Simulated assay, not measured.
Amino acid sequence: MIGIDLFSGAGGMSLGARQAGIDVQQVVEADEHAAATYLANHKPKYGIFVDDIRKYQPGKIQGRDDEGLVIFGGPPCQGFSTSNQRTRSLDNESNWLFEEFVRVVKGYRPDWFVFENVRGILETEGGIFVDHILERFQKLGYTVSSDLLHATDFGVPQKRARFFIIGSLHGKTYIFPEATHKTLVTVSKAIADLPVLSNGASTCYLSYPKRATNKYAQLLRNGLKGCTNHLVTRNNEIIIERYRHIPPGGNWENIPDHLMGNYSDKSRCHTGIYRRLELDKPSVVIGNYRKNMLIHPSQNRGLSVREAARLQSFPDDFVFKGSIGFQQQQVGNAVPPMLANAIFKNLQEHTQ
């Protein structure tokens, strides 16, 4: 089956699709840094359209009649996020970019589409966006199914829920995959084999200091001797001092008041701020983890790009481009490849 990835970001969904046997040939991504990362890891036949999706016009895809076509992607989700209450409304223009996804589907008439977003889209404006999206696809003649999937059920060491709408042009009802992992993959299994870092570590490539002792780490290493993008934002000393007071599973509430003097009202901090991960549990959501000050479970520093990528299920040979800030954003915005892979493996079975 041939694939077209819209709002691709760094390519988490594309990676899962390719692993499931989808030949992703056309890609649309407005951010030049994410596009550079995509091209460093994927080689789509028709390249990547690096511009506003509203300027993109569907073209001819050779071979689609023989192999079938699936369009997939996740329109920008920040406006639906539960952490952005001020933007969760009908007035936020970015919340309407799903219309561009619909437009492209209408232009290509693919056999299947896979629409992905955050769980907050189910709650925004009482669910009006979901109802509208479902209605738009049904009017185009698609049989649609929707569900909320949890990444931990598919081997991802992160408590991340994603909402999917999947449609068939040929009257087929997509059956969502059952959980593949009854035992949760923990933070320890995901990152404990990676090199120890200091605050502000800036050496991109580091050799592994020890053997991987669990299947998850072995899978993501894939025979490599070291990893790239093991980079950490340099925090000032007051931030590091705050980190020292936070136990595993703790957050800003554990920080003494005298170290929080720059906050006008410490009690109004979001519960996700200054959260230290726990080694024996899956991670909390890897979103804007630099802004949220997510803390390494045993070292007094933030997460490295590679550690965050591991928690998203990106393999170590997946290279991120741009400055560290852009790399962090790309990782945080991505769909976990293992979750995407489960979706597309089921889709492939539906086409047989």
Rank of each mutant, 00 (worst) to 15 (best):
E67N: 08
E67K: 06
E67R: 06
F72L: 10
G73F: 03
G73T: 07
C77W: 01
C77P: 02
S81I: 00
N84T: 03
N84Q: 08
R86V: 15
T87R: 12
S89R: 09
E93L: 11
E93P: 14
E93K: 09
S94G: 13
W96S: 06
F98K: 02
F101T: 01
R103A: 12
Y108W: 06
R109W: 12
W112Y: 15
F113L: 12
V114M: 14
E116Y: 04
E116N: 09
N117S: 06
T124K: 04
T124N: 09
E125F: 06
G126L: 11
G127Y: 07
F129R: 00
F129M: 01
D131I: 13
D131N: 15
Q138G: 09
Q138H: 08
K139V: 14
L140S: 10
L140Y: 12
V144R: 05
V144D: 05
S145F: 07
S146Y: 11
S146N: 12
D147L: 12
D153I: 10
F154V: 01
G155W: 01
V156F: 05
Q158W: 03
K159L: 13
F163C: 04
F164P: 00
I165D: 03
K172R: 11
K172H: 13
T173G: 06
T173A: 14
T173R: 11
F176R: 07
F176V: 07
